[in-house]
Simulated assay, not measured.
Amino acid sequence: MDMTQQRQRNRQKRIVVQAVLLVLAIMVIFGAVSSARANLEELGLSSGFGFLERSTGWSYSFSLIERSIDDTYARTLTIGIMNTVFLGLISIILSTVLGFAIGTARDARGLGVNAAATVFVQVFRNIPLILQLVFWYAVLIHLPGPRQAITMFDVAFLSNRGLMIPALNLSLMAGALVLAVAVAMPFLMRWLTAWSASQRLKAWFVTVPVLLLLATVATRPEGAPLVTAPQLQGLRFVGGTIVSIELVAMILGIVLYGSAYIAEVVRGGLQEVPKGLVEAGKAVGLNSKDIWFRIKLPMALRTIIPPLGNQWIFIMKATTIGVAIGFSDLFMLISTSITQSGQTLELIGILMAVFLGINYSIAQLVNWLNARLQLKAH
């Protein structure tokens, strides 16, 4: 028997083994589902997703859109998904920005800046996230009331009711459309081959605020101002928008914890940049700022992006700890729905599918970024 025939036989054996394993896996899954369904029927519990059309009859603390106790389970879970994605995206963006700042400070030569950044990382990285969340929540709920709220330039106010900030008179649909355009713009601008990466970034930062302003002008109620600011009336604030205490605590806890890890990723990437390139930059007269933006950051990103993507996925999964303080993310709404409806398997399946989809999307984005930043061979 020659080598070619041997390879074909080995390949056929592998295919047969894989097919047998696949059939066994399908049989195990089918048997588990059938057994679970039979057990549920014995307990008098129905299975399937028909419960999604039933009214929940209960409320929760936070929602990006209008909510009611008469909402169906389908709408309630949709709100939970929106809350989770909203919190995750904000936490990822803020953690990345703060992490890059702290990581750069960790790489700095100044002793004071380096020491302060090191203390930050060691403190927030080594205390469990759940403890940090409970600590910040306890601090926030003991803040003064609205009349004694902490003011920030008389524009934003922080009290035990939440964070009151100015808001655009922008409809939800218009805001979602602008967000979709903002996300799609980096992919659309790939066709502008004559533009450098910095020019595309500047165009993005200019275009998105202009789109927000135009959308606000087009959708605001007649005679209403473009921006509403919070104002104290009696025992509460009116105008602007209120960020709930639970959301503030979640953002604060996740961002501080996540940025400490991202800072170490950034520091490691910056230290991987060959010192010869830095010395060459100094030799041609580049200042520290130009060296960082033109040499260190572009080279470091090639090693930073893969572990940074892992941190983004972790931050998204960390949103599930909101159940500890009553933040109505998807995990909390799923838990409450299980208690109220008894549809355990279906709801856990929905939870797993949603997080699988979100985190898989983040992983694909990271893979795309990593491929774009790799050095091309000529």
Score class of each variant (00 low, 15 high):
residue 168 L to A: 06
residue 189 M to P: 01
residue 69 I to F: 12
residue 99 G to Y: 14
residue 80 G to L: 03
residue 229 A to D: 09
residue 225 P to K: 00
residue 290 D to N: 05
residue 81 I to Q: 07
residue 52 L to V: 04
residue 118 T to C: 07
residue 32 A to K: 08
residue 371 A to M: 12
residue 342 G to V: 01
residue 6 Q to S: 10
residue 21 L to K: 12
residue 203 A to K: 07
residue 334 I to S: 02
residue 335 S to F: 13
residue 278 V to G: 03
residue 250 M to V: 13
residue 35 S to G: 06
residue 318 A to G: 05
residue 198 S to N: 04
residue 293 F to L: 10
residue 255 V to T: 04
residue 177 L to S: 08
residue 327 F to D: 07
residue 324 A to W: 02
residue 343 Q to A: 11
residue 373 L to E: 13
residue 24 L to W: 15
residue 190 R to P: 02
residue 165 I to K: 04
residue 157 F to W: 05
residue 273 V to L: 05
residue 69 I to G: 15
residue 207 T to K: 14
residue 349 G to S: 14
residue 328 S to L: 05
residue 266 V to C: 06
residue 48 G to R: 09
residue 141 I to W: 06
residue 351 L to A: 03
residue 241 T to C: 00
residue 209 P to G: 08
residue 323 V to F: 11
residue 17 V to Q: 03
residue 144 P to G: 13
residue 19 A to N: 08
residue 57 G to N: 09
residue 134 V to W: 13
residue 3 M to W: 12
residue 97 V to M: 13
residue 233 Q to F: 04
residue 96 T to W: 03
residue 147 R to P: 10
residue 31 G to H: 02
residue 173 M to F: 08
residue 267 R to N: 13
residue 75 R to K: 03
residue 317 K to C: 06
residue 364 Q to L: 05
residue 281 G to S: 11
residue 45 L to K: 15
residue 357 G to E: 01
residue 268 G to P: 02
residue 342 G to R: 07
residue 161 R to H: 13
residue 275 K to L: 07
residue 292 W to L: 13
residue 184 A to L: 07
residue 100 F to W: 15
residue 117 A to R: 10
residue 119 V to M: 09
residue 110 G to T: 10
residue 357 G to S: 04
residue 334 I to G: 01
residue 157 F to G: 07
residue 234 G to R: 15
residue 317 K to T: 08
residue 357 G to D: 01
residue 70 D to T: 09
residue 21 L to V: 11
residue 333 L to H: 02
residue 367 N to S: 11
residue 178 V to Q: 12
residue 348 I to M: 06
residue 298 P to R: 12
residue 206 V to R: 09
residue 345 L to Y: 12
residue 100 F to L: 15
residue 275 K to M: 09
residue 143 L to P: 10
residue 41 E to Y: 04
residue 81 I to Y: 05
residue 4 T to N: 09
residue 42 E to M: 05
